[in-house]
Design a protein around this nucleic acid. Sequence first.
DNA 1: AGCACA
Length: 324
Amino acid sequence: MAGPPQYNQWAPPMQPDAAHDEVRTIFVLGFPPDVKERELQNLLRWWPGYEASQMNFKCDQPMGFALFSTAAMAMAARDALQNLVFDADTNSVLRAEMAKKNLFVKRGVTGDLNAGFDASKRMRTGGGDYSPAPYPAPYPPAYPAQPMAVSAPAWGPQTYAQPQAQYEQYVSYPAPQPSPVAPSGYAPVQNTKDNPPCNTLFIGNLGEAVNENELRALFSGQPGFRQMKVLRQGKNTVCFIEFVDVNSAMSVHANLQGAVLSTSDRGGMRIQFSKNPYGRKREGANTHHEPGLTMAPGVEGNGGAEHTVPPTAVVIGPEQQATV
DNA sequence: AGCACA
């Protein structure tokens, strides 16, 4: 709503480095009404290529915009945000798309006439920080790709699963994950009789027509994915997904619970922890058993707290390391 | 409401 605000007064002066005319801005919907601009920044600031972001509250629901260094990076971020449960309590599930236009990064708003075209560099990779607002209130937003067409599904992921920033670890620039394929939606699913958290998920309640490609497209892009196996049992197909650690499995367990695939014909998929996780030896056969390798923290053993998750690596520049 | 493979 709130029709076009004062866009004119910010008529975009040609940016010298605007060789970037490709759209490298994402548009995010689904935030709860009380979301703060800072939350968007903190959500994205570790993502490769993040340059700046902005939350627009002018419409009936908050709209987030984030600018990345390249279109590819923006798309990777878009896919990573897709269906993310931002707040389980308010059932806020994010929807991300490429924006129609790039976020316009205002410079020198504070009267710093000199800051000029370097403003974007100041903000690069979260140059914002926890200090007083790196840039003042609302900037003119790029027009949303779809002003408010998208709404969060009533059912979906149940927890907030955010790629874990690895603060203590230096990682080379990560290749963005294979883009997770967004489920077409979510449907309620009964999930009583689950098993204790472990590194392997059991996927049930799949449609009769599911195929492995479809499952692989969805799961192989999930952080921490290691391998999967599809098992057909007549009309029933089930699937096992191994993750590098319990936490990764738990995220997907929550995030994709009830996900509906194109082939789903009986509601959303049911995701449970497997009775027989990968990596756990069958009864007897081993000498130095290490239950902690596959058990969740608190369930048994020491629970994988010591495991790192290379595939989810997030870039951290030296300047951030210093401030974190 | 279905749990294989090491």
